[in-house]
Design a binder for these strands. Structure first.
Length: 764
DNA sequence: AACGGGAGGATTTTT
DNA sequence: TCCTCCCGTT
């Protein structure tokens, strides 16, 4: 125990050893959050307050879950495999497999990833003759997912106009289609589990009693449904249930666009009557100037729980700021600085280039490539999302559940076997007539189409029979052969990579079996033995004895089903194993949770970062500011910020102003590598602006600024001096004439709003 | 069925 | 600019 707790600072120690009450840990960037979370679990177990089976730890990503397991097994001499540590989706998958009957799902239900879901919706719209101009599939998908993320079914929604009524109708039809086909999308995993537990009292109470300690990572990223899910399991409002230990950072909430609700933090504090709010403010990552920049910037946000990072590491180096003429020269500058860093002994993998949007990476990539500097771009297609891999997966899905129409349609004519659009239309008509799956409708199609379709069914049936007793990797190999996918790509000019990817699937299967604790030789098709139950038996409303959805997965699903869920829930790495010793390029979003000795934050221009679309969203700029905060706090030792006067975007040259975030950073923490131009800078910029052909948003922005500054005699971006507050920069101007007020950032003296007709300001 | 031309769109992302 | 999607042609 001494070992477990030593080296924790006071804040961390307090969090780890909190009594059994709901707690909210405000964990700043680089404050040892994961350490606190894992040590808390270890401490609870080691002090005998809970057994490993009483722990439920939830994360958002598989990576975070794995990290937690790894650290835990290093701390505790127990087998972590039996512990419930996983992603929301992974845990729901496990619960739904076990209780599939109560959840009204086939045990082999398959999981749609986003691509699958979109094609399912496209198919639905076609089947119901919906005008996809008026109801674009993507929009329908957002609508459905948005509703599910709030825990709403179609019948829960009160449509406020005809269009919405149609969407609600489509939502219902979509759910019907999924149910018919035995498939479940990501949001459905959560919602179905939530409904299962809320409707089934014995089941709910069983898990409420079992999970005495529920720990949640990245709590600021939870959506409404996830919070409801947690409340349900924690038995909120009832006598039963466990203690919720939530760890998060409201300042790092950057996923509102996908439904995350930071408000869950304060809601949790209120609803669970949290007495234990602990702030982890000691930062072990960044040097002082970098933290100062982060702290001062984020102080501009109004809705915060409040937190200030501190470090023992000293000031370190100032943040370097560079203004480039163009995106090309920005890239060139990055190359030069990167070369310097490497010459000084920096490892390439300790250099990160961050940008707001993916479109910005191209120019920088090009420059790095020309300079012969190895780099790795994050993002892009993941292994299980590649077309050829998805095709193979579709064949495997048909092995497991031939009534999955999505999988059927994907490969019925791939590789080509003469089953065209007409054949499919005939088949679809038959399926609709009898209300059955496409696969089941094949015998009803006559003629030539019927013969080729029957051939396909024979292929599936034959392969299924042939692989009956095979272990998973062997089954995968046979499916790759029998489907003629390998043969098909062998004839393609560029097929070598695809074949390699397909063959990799055999080893992926082997690796999966060992990771999940399946015997390597277990027949892939075979379901779990009915006796392989663990945990307490519980009885549902019908008096059936049901088993606890305990780990490992092998007890609740066949190796094949498990592998298929794995393929959907864990999309795999992006791209082939990139060389480790490479400059890391990624969006700010994907940099969350990572850290580097040297960080470049590029494209810091109004309209890009903060992004122009953010101004239209509720609290959009605050979210962008949090994003900037995340970006800054990635850096350990050296941070570079850059912006450019002109940038080629969407085929047009744009003239941007430097990001407002520069005006929100403390002067003393910055070192301008190029002259900081103002106020003449603004004039020069405005001239360039006037000369250049304006595109929509430039005009809007110029107009907005003109409106704001008209008649005040002051301009946004201008440097001023005040007798009391010292030097500052005008960040914003509101109102006009005698009512005009300027928001001025006085750096160390803070942000002030001054009445321009009263305050005595001097131009600098 | 495969290819090409044209139109339109283009934050951010995990599961 | 550059990628994706759809439609029309071979």
């Amino acid at each position: 125990m001494q070992n477990l707790l030593h080296n924790l600072n006071d804040e961390q120690l307090a969090a780890v050893t909190l009594p059994s009450q709901s707690a909210l840990i405000l964990a700043g960037a680089g404050s040892g959050k994961t350490r606190v979370l894992t040590t808390r679990i270890a401490w609870l177990i080691q002090t005998g307050q809970v057994s490993p089976s009483g722990i439920l730890a939830v994360t958002f990503t598989n990576k975070a879950a794995k990290e937690m397991l790894t650290r835990l097994s290093a701390m505790l001499p127990i087998n972590t495999r039996g512990m419930w540590i996983g992603t929301f989706h992974g845990l729901c998958n496990r619960l739904l497999r076990t209780h599939h009957r109560d959840a009204a799902l086939p045990q082999t239900f398959q999981i749609l990833d986003t691509q699958d879901q979109l094609s399912a919706i496209k198919r639905l719209l076609k089947a119901h003759n919906v005008d996809d101009e008026k109801f674009p599939p993507k929009e329908v998908m957002y609508f459905i997912n948005g509703a599910k993320d709030q825990g709403l079914r179609a019948h829960d929604i009160e449509p406020y106009n005809a269009d919405e009524r149609k969407k609600v109708e489509l939502y219902q039809l979509y759910d019907d289609q999924c149910q018919r086909e035995g498939v479940v999308d990501f949001a459905e995993l959560l919602l179905r589990t939530y409904e299962l537990l809320s409707r089934n009292q014995p089941l709910r109470e069983h898990y409420q009693q079992r999970f005495q300690h529920i720990l949640v990572d990245e709590f600021q990223d939870t959506n409404d449904l996830q919070y409801k899910w947690l409340k349900l399991l924690a038995g909120h409002g009832g006598q039963r249930g466990g203690v919720l230990f939530a760890v998060g950072d409201d300042d790092q909430s950057i996923y509102a666009f996908r439904g995350a609700n930071v408000g869950n933090m304060s809601a949790f504090e209120r609803e669970f009557n949290v007495k234990n709010l602990i702030k982890l403010e000691q930062n072990y990552r960044s040097h002082g100037y970098i933290l100062d920049a982060a702290n001062v910037l984020i102080a501009n946000n109004s809705k915060r729980l409040g937190k200030n990072l501190r470090t023992d590491a000293g000031h370190g180096e100032q943040v370097r700021v560079y203004e480039a003429n163009s995106d090309l020269s920005e890239a060139q500058w990055i190359i030069e600085e990167t070369k310097n860093l490497i010459a000084e002994g920096a490892s390439r993998s300790e250099i990160a280039v961050l940008y707001r949007s993916n479109a910005q990476s191209r120019v920088i990539e090009h420059a790095l490539f020309s300079a012969g500097i190895p780099y790795h771009v994050y993002g892009g297609l993941r292994y299980f999302q590649r077309a050829e891999v998805k095709h193979a997966i579709a064949y495997l899905q048909l092995m497991d559940n031939p009534h999955n129409d999505s999988a059927f349609l994907r490969v019925v004519n791939f590789p080509a076997r003469g089953i065209g659009v007409r054949s499919i239309e005939t088949l679809q008509a038959a399926a609709d007539q009898y209300g059955i799956s496409l696969y089941a409708a094949v015998p009803y199609v006559t003629g030539k189409a019927g013969t080729s379709l029957a051939g396909f069914v024979k292929l599936i049936e034959g392969t299924r029979f042939e692989t009956q007793q095979m272990a998973l990797p062997e089954l995968v190999r046979v499916v790759l052969e029998q489907s003629t996918l390998l043969a098909h790509y062998a004839t393609e000019k560029e097929g070598a990579d695809r074949i390699e990817n397909l063959e990799q699937m055999v080893s992926a299967a082997t690796q999966f079996l060992s990771e999940e604790g399946y015997g390597q030789g277990a027949p892939a098709h075979l379901g779990p033995p009915a006796q392989a139950q663990s945990g307490l038996p519980v009885v549902n409303e019908d008096g059936f004895e049901i088993l606890d959805a305990d780990a490992p997965l092998a007890t609740v699903m066949s190796p094949l089903s498990a592998f298929l869920s794995h393929a959907s829930l864990e999309a795999g790495d992006n791209q082939a194993a990139a060389s480790q010793e490479a400059v890391q390029m990624m969006t700010v979003h994907s940099a969350k949770g990572l850290e580097f000795n040297n960080v470049f934050i590029t494209g810091l221009e109004e309209g890009l970062f903060p992004h122009e679309s953010s101004s239209r969203e509720h609290d959009g700029v605050e979210e962008e500011r949090r994003l900037m905060y995340v970006a800054i706090t990635r850096a350990r030792q050296r941070l570079y910020l850059s912006f450019t006067q002109t940038r080629m975007l969407h085929g047009q040259t744009r003239y941007n102003m430097k990001s407002r975030f520069f005006d929100e950073l403390p002067e003393e923490a910055l070192k301008w590598l190029t002259p900081k131009m103002q106020p003449s800078w603004f004039g020069a910029r405005k001239a360039a602006w006037d000369e250049a052909p304006m595109v929509g948003n430039d005009k809007a922005l110029a107009q907005q600024i003109a409106n704001k500054t008209s008649g005040t005699g002051w301009r946004i971006g201008e440097s001023v001096a005040h007798a009391k507050f010292g030097e500052g920069v005008i960040v914003n101007i509101e109102g006009s004439g005698n009512n005009a007020r300027a928001q001025i950032n006085f750096g160390a003296a803070g942000m002030k709003v001054l009445d321009l007709s009263i305050a005595k300001l001097d131009r600098l």
